[in-house]
Amino acid sequence: MNKPCTNRLITLLVIGFCCISLVLPFSLAMLWSLVDPGHPWSYPHILPPVLSLQRWVDIWTTTSLPQALLHSYLLAPCVALCSVLLALPTAYAFGRLEFPGKQAAQLISLLPLIVPSFVVALFFSSLLNVLGIYSRFLGILIGQTVLFIPYAIRILSVSFSLIRQEIIDATRDLGGGPITVFKTAYLPVLKPGLLASIIMIFILSIEEFAIAFVVGSPDFVTVPTILYSYLGYNFIRSNAAVVSLILVVPNIFLMLLMERFLKARNTAVITGKG
């Protein structure tokens, strides 16, 4: 097989994969969310008989979705910031220091990733009672931070390990104090990692259900807890479609933003050696 032909085949495969995994579910969700409540979309209709924004209006006015959005988008940046700040010292140690037991410590720091979040959530909620933390917001904030710190540690320790000692030395050698060293040698290399972990944890926090549900319910709602209320035994596909679109669309933009930052900054990290 010649080269252009192979390339075309691969392109087609990728496009096909994208269609099946992204475009199809999205357009279906879109269609379902636009189904008019008075005219159900059922067999033998290939397309919904009547399209309207009635579902969107209903959900916005009858449920606590506005409040849930506020909660989610207030929680997410706080969780992202807390996780990253708390992960920084550990990541520094993993990325830049040598100490006995480093391998084991790195492994242990990743353990929370393999424990199902519902298990964490159940024990965590009773722990909060013991500790006397009754604020729902604070409870979810702490819980999600604990859950997402491993991601931040993992990403940031790689960033820290990419910092070159000679650049630090050169900065100091030319008269730079600690602040200049941080700005010149650390920040340019850390920046993509910081952005990536903040955006990633932001998205994870927006989508997190277990802790938000166990700790927050019934009076503290987030977008996923509303979404899950439309699943299960009072399942309404159209309403679920609306909520899931509200949940997912901002995340896609954030993902694209993250991609851009990572690409734009990577050149500064890799090059510079003669």
Partner: peptide, 26 residues
């Protein structure tokens, strides 16, 4: 003292002019 590094250790995110001026700025 000022050191000339084996790997040069230039600041990759700074232009040549800013690399040269890094010390004087400090």
């Amino acid at each position: 003292t000022a050191m000339c590094f084996q790997s040069y250790a230039l600041f990759p995110h700074l232009s040549v002019a800013n690399n040269l001026l890094f010390g004087p700025k400090q």
